[in-house]
Amino acid sequence: MQKNLAKPNPRILHGETKKMIQTFIQKFTQEKIEYTKIGSKYFLATKSLIQIKDKIKITPLLVGLYLGEEKEGKFAPSLALLEIIAKTSTNKVFIKDIGEMDFIYGKKLRSRHILKIEGETKVGFLKLIQNEHDENLGLGKISKEIKEGGTIIKNKMDRGDFLRREMD
């Protein structure tokens, strides 16, 4: 069950302090993802990549694919992690082309944007947001049940972040 989802930073999600990444992944898929942790950051890295890293004395900023990090006791997934888990997840919302850009610009999704919902539809649940090609656009949270109409999915994070980071 989801509880108390973070308010101030949309990229931070609650989880258990110990295995935050696993707790997060399990909300979406049974897939096991082998990760390695450096400081507060999680990475997807092969054994041979870790062997190379171990020969170098200084600490890297990246080893393999960045999966997310712990911030103030919470887990902030990366967009790359969402993309990976979306491949095997059945906890998704598919949206129409017309909603794609709205979502990428950080906006909420309304019923007219939505094509199909897989899995749980209760208020408070996190959903992977997919376009018509089943490509991940980000993460949303159901904020109103579908049958009530109006705004139903809040934007928690989206791939437009890549563009926003370039502008910083």
Partner: peptide, 28 residues
Amino acid sequence: QALLNNLERLGIKNCIAYNIDARKFEGV
């Protein structure tokens, strides 16, 4: 940051990145 963003966006899985003056790098 631009380097890390591009690698994440492009889905690169086999890179190790360091913030260092290359003239001081050693190990492999």
